[in-house]
């Protein structure tokens, strides 16, 4: 019974996702105004040949700052979990 229910839910999911390749057409994006602007003016404004880099570091610099902070926070979390503990310090491992 439970397996039938899970299979039914998956079939509904699959049917819902199959709308995606039926509606969208590959290789023909709908709204390209912003990207056309980047491609036309990005080289002159940021003086960089690589438009992706100029989008990442110049036009969307705040985005990249947040990304770096997320990476930093993840590293801090890992370091806090595995840090060397002092003698006699109480912790919940083991």
């Amino acid at each position: 019974m439970k397996k039938v229910l899970v299979a039914a839910i998956f079939l509904v999911w699959a049917a819902g996702l199959c709308i995606l390749p039926l509606l969208l057409s590959f290789g023909n994006p709908a709204a390209t105004d912003m990207d056309t602007y980047f491609l036309r003016n990005g080289q002159a404004a940021a003086a960089a040949n690589n438009i992706v880099t100029s989008v990442v570091f110049d036009f969307r610099g705040f985005d990249t700052l947040g990304e770096s902070v997320v990476l930093f926070t993840a590293v801090t979390g890992v370091a806090l979990m595995f840090r060397a503990r002092k003698e006699g310090e109480e912790h919940e491992d083991e």
Partner: peptide, 10 residues
């Protein structure tokens, strides 16, 4: 388009 590639990098 460059912007989806930049967002994918993020």
């Amino acid at each position: 388009l460059p912007t989806p590639q930049a967002l994918t990098l993020t």
